[in-house]
Design a protein around this nucleic acid. Structure first.
Length: 427
RNA sequence: GCACAGGUGACCGAGUGGUUAAUGGUAGCAGACUGUAAAUCUGCCGCUCUUCGGAGCUACGGAGGUUCGAAUCCUCCCCUGUGCA
């Protein structure tokens, strides 16, 4: 078992589950904060660890292949013990493959069958990214979940263009998997893992385990039993290597999405992502594409929609059966002064908050809402104080994580309808 | 008192006869942000109307003057800075 995934409750198509990684549990549906360059921008790791109500914190965050390869360099990270150790993050990590940069750095790259040549946005130097190279880098970084190297198809794209792009992503997926399987043991934490002798604790957590506090800390993980002499965690019954996820593409064509899903599933990955969405299409189209892919993707494995979304969107996708999502929105928008609240979005720099003594979100229990006023946050933002971005980001991430926590709770109760109505109409 | 240098829209600061309601920047107001080239980017930013195409008014220390036309040239006055007495 490369990545234990246990479903605990369902409500319609939505499901509550748990992924057991070598670096702690991830309760799903999960929102994963984006930490592109080895940092969730503006938020210290210890704060990430107890973000949101219940202090559950972020159980998994993202890193990025392209950015960490350019700086500080994946070999350096490997030599320093891997990304977990380097950035002092002992929970789960997922690295994106650089596939999104194929899309977002369109001015600076050239796509060929072999791979993608990039000009560094930092110094202009040229670099070739191939599926093999992406795997090598992600393994060196030591992510718990590695993403296949894909091409995030631009929008709009003609059908033939979308098909050709999808076909290449499929070929790249195969190459990614071949290289990954041959080299996954080279990840920096593999040698810390003691292989389990049996299935103990895998797949179906027993009642005792479920009653343990799910803090997400590796130290309190129900499957964790001891530590090695050097203090490094010793893992039993947990993944001994990273897991590789395949990625569904197919542009905005449902049949291509289904075909992409079918052929990716044939390659047999421990989890599947749906990529190439929220690139300019309507929300209806996004949902249509997600639905098409979910028809095909196996229900007993994690399904991850990449790069989404607004709070009301991630609730909808979770209700459709999506288990994982990531998005820069809560972090980037926070640094730009946009706060997500239970009453909608507020732009904290607006003059009307200059004397507002209320918390950013009266219904939020985060450390920011519990301590600071809108007037103060506005002052910090207007003054360009670094703390503005820090506090705004902490709140937004807490809001996102709490949103997912509520979704999980609603699924446990078997009814997501309350979360869907009322949150859908945010503009 | 004398000699230089100056006084430009909330602020700083270009502009030295017309295409100038006046370059830039700051401040201010608002908007965007979806696997992060983003603590970034965009719009507005004298007043009053507008069918949103535009129309009218008021503006470059003050008052006069030259000119078809002046923030720009001349005269006087006021004020600021520096230097010398």
């Amino acid at each position: 078992m490369t990545l234990p995934f246990s479903i605990q409750a369902q409500a319609g198509a939505g499901r509550k589950a748990r992924i057991d990684t070598a670096h702690g549990a991830v309760e799903t549906p999960a929102f994963m904060p984006v930490g592109t360059a080895g940092t969730v921008k503006a938020v210290p790791q210890d704060v990430l660890e107890d973000l949101g109500s219940g202090n559950l914190g972020a159980q998994i965050i993202l890193g990025n292949t392209y950015h960490l390869y350019l700086r500080p360099g994946h070999e350096l990270v490997r030599n320093l013990g891997g990304l977990h150790k380097f950035m002092s993050w002992n929970r789960a990590l997922l690295t994106d493959s650089g596939g999104f940069q194929v899309f977002s750095l369109s001015e600076l790259r050239k796509v060929k069958e072999e791979g993608v040549s990039f000009r560094s946005h930092l110094d202009g130097t040229s670099h070739l990214f191939t599926p093999e190279r992406s795997m090598e880098i992600q393994i060196a970084l030591g992510a718990d979940i590695v993403m296949a190297f894909d091409e995030c198809t631009e929008h709009p794209a003609e059908r033939e263009r979308a098909r050709a792009s999808m076909e290449m992503t499929l070929r790249w997926a195969k190459r990614s998997k071949d290289y990954f399987e041959a080299h996954k043991h080279e990840c920096p934490w593999t040698n810390r893992v003691i292989r389990s002798s049996g299935n103990r604790g895998i797949g179906k957590p027993n009642s005792n385990q479920q009653q343990l506090p799910l803090r997400g800390q590796p130290e309190s993980h129900p499957l964790r039993k001891e530590r090695a002499k050097d203090g490094a965690p010793v893992l039993h019954g947990l993944p001994t290597n990273p897991a590789l996820f395949g990625i569904v593409q197919g542009g905005m064509y449902s049949d291509l999405r289904r075909e992409s899903a079918e052929r990716t599933v044939e390659m047999d990955f421990p989890g599947y992502a749906i990529g190439g969405l929220s690139v300019g299409e309507s929300r209806e189209k996004t949902m249509e594409m997600i639905a098409a892919a979910l028809e095909i993707l196996p229900k007993d494995k994690p399904r991850y929609v990449m790069g989404v979304g607004y709070p009301e969107e991630i609730v909808q996708y979770a209700a459709m059966g999506v288990d994982m999502m990531d998005c820069v929105l809560p972090t980037r928008a926070a640094r730009h002064g946009l706060l997500f609240t239970s009453e909608g979005r507020i732009n904290i720099k607006n003059a009307r908050y200059a004397q507002d003594q209320g918390p950013p979100d009266p219904k939020c229990g985060c450390r920011v809402c519990g301590r600071y006023t809108r007037a103060y946050l506005r002052h910090l933002f207007v003054s360009a104080e670094p703390l503005a971005g820090v506090l705004n980001t902490i709140h937004n991430l807490a809001f996102y994580l709490d949103t997912m926590r509520s979704v999980r709770h609603a699924i446990t109760l078997g009814d997501l309808s309350g979360m869907l109505s009322g949150s859908v109409s945010l503009t």
